[in-house]
């Protein structure tokens, strides 16, 4: 199997994630889509590490996972707080920055 296929898969996953972020209103789903994009990027990093034959890509992937974990912690907390105060987790309802 050609190694480029991993990159194609990564691109498809990233696109799916991006489209999901743009079109879905549910904050949890948006969140999962972001995770999907992060992991697509991880896949690309690992693939490039394999192609170049060094570990740098793998190390970055670990970093990304840690950042993603932190993001999930903060993000979920925000979502829960928003849900508590507004009884909704639609991202369109939380458009307070406009004013």
């Amino acid at each position: 199997m050609a190694i480029a296929n991993y990159l194609y898969l990564s691109a498809i996953l990233f696109t799916i994630g991006a489209v999901g972020v743009v079109i879905r209103r549910n904050a949890i789903v948006v969140f999962m889509c972001i995770e999907l994009m992060l992991n697509a990027a991880n896949l690309a990093f690992v693939t490039f590490a394999r192609i170049n034959g060094n570990l740098q890509g793998q190390v970055v992937a670990f970093f990304t996972m840690v950042v993603a974990a932190c993001e999930v912690v903060v993000g979920l907390a925000i979502i829960v707080t928003i849900y508590r105060s507004r009884r909704s987790i639609s991202v369109d309802d939380a458009s307070l920055l406009k004013r």
């Binding site: 991006a18 972020v21 991202v91 369109d92 920055l97």
Partner: peptide
Amino acid sequence: LQNGYVRSYALLMI
């Protein structure tokens, strides 16, 4: 352009 919708910001970023 700054309409407050997260999704449109995301779209702009993309």
